[in-house]
Design a protein around this nucleic acid. Structure first.
Length: 85
DNA sequence: AATGAGGCCCTAA
DNA sequence: ATTAGGGCCTCAT
């Protein structure tokens, strides 16, 4: 089981309406210092390509962070799920 | 409060 | 084995 798979599994388990930080995801995946890699991985996933809600992962600051399809799209999705203000 | 520079972890070439 | 890149995080101006 590679780190990527673990990360994807973690993100997949995020319930609707809830968001996790990259840091948290990295920590749950095993390497709490790998938040960078998490970003890279989610970027490759580029959305719900595998049923993985990458848009439910945000930055520690509370900002949405980045998104392969565009930050605006991510914000919109999160607002739809009431995950953010 | 808002930038700038550094650093660690992973994947792909 | 090494290099480059990334949706980041933190510390110090």
């Amino acid at each position: 089981m590679s780190f990527t798979e673990k990360v994807l599994a973690v993100v997949k388990r995020i319930p609707k309406g809830q968001v996790l930080t990259y840091k948290e995801v990295a920590r749950r995946a095993g390497s709490k210092r790998a938040y960078r890699a998490v970003g890279n991985i989610l970027n490759r996933c580029g959305g719900m390509r595998s049923g993985i809600p990458c848009h439910r992962v945000v930055r520690s600051d509370g900002t949405v962070g980045g998104y392969a399809w565009g930050t605006k799209k991510k914000e919109k999705l999160l607002r739809k799920e009431k995950a953010i203000s």
